[in-house]
Computed example of a mutant assay.
Amino acid sequence: MENSREVYDVVVVGAGIEGSATAYHLAKSGKHVLLVDQFPLPHSRGSSHGQSRITRKAYGPQDFYTRMMDEAYRLTEVLQAECGEQLFIKCGTLVFGRYDDPFTVGTEDCLRRFNVPFEKFGSAEQRRRYPGMEFPKDFTFVLDKTGGVLRADKMLQAFQKQFVRYGGVLVDGEPMKELLPGEIVTVRTPRRMFRGRSVVLALGPWAANFLPTIGVDIPLQPTRTLVCYWRERGCSRTFDVSRFPTIITENANESHHIYGLPVVEYPGLVKICLHTGPDVDPDRRDAVDSRWVEDRMRAIIAQNFPGLDPTPAVTETCIYTMTPDHDPVLDHHPAWKNIVIAAGFSGHGFKLSPVVGKVLSQLATGQTPEYDMSHFRLARFHKHKL
């Protein structure tokens, strides 16, 4: 049993990828840190489970993300060396759309500005290289050669294991019921209280319900996404990770944003998903109807991926927590500077997690991050209720 009088330097609430990365950086810097999660670990109820995520450097006109991703790549290499496991598979990321598609054009511009190795080609070359998919002849294809796959579950476990190795305390199965601000912040669970000089709230989809209880109203909307795996036709291995990149397009079938990953999880199954879904309460995640997501994806697969069976072989679920501008909040509480909020990663937080964890650790210990944090401020929503 924890000593209720013990005071940690930092208490991190939420052991998803952002909270675990934050706790890792704090413990590695010598801080006395507690990482606490509401569910027994590992679990699949939030946003950080699953075996794979896309990573890439280009973010269109959002240069601040590309600058962060440069460090995220370096920090991932450090974590790989520490844990002794491969966390990143370099297979490239293929972004594509019509010739005037802002996302594709912005990606190419970004890659040029930052001198990231890439190739650009048309539909004939695409069909020669990647014959398992077909898109209109006026599409342009931009291959970020530095992109690829993060082995997500291994990366999450690596952050947690290294956190403990550096002296951190990990407690799971204890949901936060109340947060008591003050010079020493108290986190109350059903069993006990934890105290810290500062706290980082990395609550995932539960942030939407909890943050208003401490006077912060961010327009957060949890969304239930459907993760679909499609079986390759025949035995061509067209979609094997050694031959096929990760893919992203916002032009598929009436401008629906889809993303995909090669065969890296289930044998012979390719992960291709819609980047949206129905709004959801994370505590009632199975109460929503997401059949329309699967129907839309079936149509896209049938039309654009002749190398795949248009009936999903496996479906799983995940939760995004969306903000109106799709950028997260990384900021201090407006009244209590020793409470740091991390919320609203909008489905693209995993790849950023190594550097986001570093930034949050700096905010929690009174340091100033070297990045322009104006993109992540609470104040941009003008909805504080103190």
Rank of each mutant, 00 (worst) to 15 (best):
D9C: 00
V12C: 08
A15N: 02
E18R: 00
V36E: 03
F39Q: 08
P40A: 08
R45T: 09
S48R: 09
I54N: 10
T55N: 08
V78S: 11
A81N: 13
G97H: 06
R98I: 04
Y99C: 11
P102S: 04
D109K: 15
L111M: 14
N115A: 15
P117Y: 11
E119G: 04
S123C: 11
R127P: 08
K137N: 13
T140R: 14
F141N: 08
K145D: 12
G148A: 08
D153V: 06
A158D: 05
Q160E: 14
V169A: 14
G173L: 11
G182E: 00
G182V: 12
V199P: 11
V200L: 01
P205C: 10
A208W: 01
N209R: 13
N209I: 00
N209V: 04
L211F: 06
D217R: 14
D217Q: 12
T223M: 05
R233S: 09
R237Q: 05
D240L: 02
R243W: 02
L261P: 09
V264S: 02
E265P: 01
G268T: 00
G268F: 00
D283Q: 05
R284Q: 12
E294I: 14
N304R: 10
L308A: 06
T311L: 13
T317W: 05
Y320D: 13
D331G: 13
H332M: 07
W336F: 14
I339Q: 11
V340C: 09
F350H: 05
S353H: 02
L363H: 07
L363I: 11
A364I: 10
A364N: 06
P369T: 13
L378Q: 04
